[in-house]
Design a protein around this nucleic acid. Structure first.
Lengths: 204, 204, 204, 204
DNA sequence: AATGAATGAGAGTTCATTCAT
DNA sequence: AATGAATGAACTCTCATTCAT
């Protein structure tokens, strides 16, 4: 099933750790966190299980490593676009575009994220890593909505916290569970926008 | 830790199966699907593992049994209120009330549901059972939104499918991941309503 | 190296536990507590490792089982001879005979006992089982010496507790460490007797 | 838990070996020979495991090293007091004082000694090192008792070999297994003396 | 003389499943 | 319908040892 990737001998510790994290992520995609086996990771990296334990002392630490690696990816993604001097509506659209990029470029990220969020319910170590990601994301929407109301671009009766939860929840779930209900991301984003943004006044 | 529930010997097959499903659900709440062990279920039901296997031939079958049991609960819940002759807005609010009741009376249902949806990604048997539940739920919202637009009560530019995905997604996620962002169910529902419903015209 | 003893299928739990304890004792003799491996025990009993764990849940429990089994053997040995109505000197000699019998009939007992005493230093479970054995043995000597002094048969200046520690220590060590210094048990017992017992007054 | 002792780089081979032996002894005290791990030793010395293996090629060699180090300590202890021109009773008391000093100044020595004697049963290398220590000790007592009888200070019917085994056994065991039976070293020594030494004739 | 990285062999333990009764 | 006993296969983790530098 799974081919061992070329086993370069004597890599540096950080390189190996990175390779381990990547292999673990690939395997979580394939078999889920529940089906994740240290031996499979070692095999895919091309190292001995003992070597894997040399670099990552326990499975718990391994999952924490994956969680941290996911966090890094998310953060680097959301820092790419400069946010300064933008209107709330522009910021909202930038968030949507960030989401679209993650979904396009790293579609697996969401799957792993979901599994980790599930795991966080029972694993405080993972919770400590994942919690901030979600909250950071939510907090950004709260802020955008707050400003949008002040700017007069969003509905005046908008509840920023509730709206942020709706948006992040809807986006999360959109990718969690693909079903027969196909709605393009575009129409999904458009509907979310209409839900909170006032229609632009008719010109002339 | 957990006391075996009184083990009535020689129960009928169906009663035993029900008891097994309930015990499994309780254990999924406690330890997650990943932490579910057949021995724990048997112990909680008060029977031998071999007996459990007599009634439910495999763990896969057991999970399918749990999934079916969840479906039953959901369906009976959504059939309690008569839907006939109601306006779209009333129907939307009824859906919200149904959700509130599930969340209040059977808060664990959502947790198990989430775990099963996750599992469905890799288990076609579970997928076949869980898919329809979500889709049935979504379909109801699609229908409500379609009618609401026709009735002129909802936004004219509303996309029923996208809106349905937003609502179901937001609701699912609301219960999946409780965080520092506290928003009461009431304000959450209110915001969802404002997102799609036209403001009532000023009286007089 | 080690032949599996005939594997009778489907034995009762107690029989299996006994067989496991005996196999463990034999292996401790051969390789020491440190070299004791659950897999070796299972192989010698003729069962699967998982079956061994079915009967004895952990290695710690296994060692406790061995300790208890050793205790049983010791106690049954020391209860064989009636003690009532004997003089202190007779009782002392009976203790010596008991020791000789253990050494003759069950020479391995001492080896295992020593290993367990060593282990008891760090394992409270074993300590709780082994401690009483030694103390019971010592207490008997204390009592014998106390009575012997009162009866006027032992030295008047004898310190019963110190003397008991000397006797039990000397006996323990006698079997622990066989060396070039060969002293027959008979002369060893005789010297111990002379050490504490007054010479019988010259007749006539 | 345990701080690595300052790791002076590039020590001479002998200094390193000494440091390793000392660290090993400390760890045997803490966790027993069974719990001794090369990695723990290396960490405590402040060197890499590979470095440890450079100096001491195998664990067996390491234990032999510890045994030799123990032997050195014992021998240097027993050579401190000049023995010439002493009576048997004086020599006996000097042995007791030596024992008391070991017990007071280096209480751990006995624990390690016991573990090594146990190990010697199965390890010829250790046996070859430890055997002589015990035998040297015993031989000294044999000689003392022999002279004491000749001098007329000890019981005429004393069996020097048996008596030596009793004394060394009792002393070994005294420190091996501390229990509820508390007897001071003083009363222990006193009782051992009375056991073998004739009462001094009543003056006048 | 020293070390980070690697490893084979195995340790105890777990678990869904099956068999004999 | 029920169960005690049994099992194969796998799991994570450990440890003394070695290799390349």
């Amino acid at each position: 099933m799974t081919m061992p990737i070329a086993a370069a001998r004597r890599e540096s510790g950080d390189e190996r750790k990175l390779a381990i994290a990547l292999a673990a992520r690939a395997l979580i995609i394939e078999k889920g966190l529940e089906g994740l086996r240290t031996r499979d990771i070692a095999q895919r990296v091309g190292i001995n299980i003992a070597t894997l334990h040399y670099h990552v002392p326990s499975k718990e630490a391994l999952i924490a490593l994956v969680a941290a690696s996911i966090r890094t990816d998310f953060q680097s993604q959301s820092l790419r676009r400069p946010r300064a001097g933008k209107s709330a509506l522009q910021l909202l659209r930038m968030e949507f575009e960030d989401f679209r990029e993650i979904v396009t470029d790293m579609p697996d990220l969401i799957i792993i994220l979901t599994e980790l969020v599930e795991r966080a319910r029972r694993d405080p170590v993972v919770a400590a890593i994942m919690g901030p990601i979600y909250n950071f994301w939510r907090r950004q929407f709260v802020e955008i909505f707050r400003r949008g109301v002040l700017e007069g671009a969003f509905r005046a009766d908008l509840d920023p916290v509730a709206a942020a939860l709706i948006v992040t929840g809807a986006l999360s779930d959109y990718w969690r569970d693909r079903t027969e209900f196909q709605s393009s991301l575009d129409s999904f984003f458009a509907e979310l926008e209409r839900a909170f943004v006032l229609p632009s006044p008719p010109q002339g």
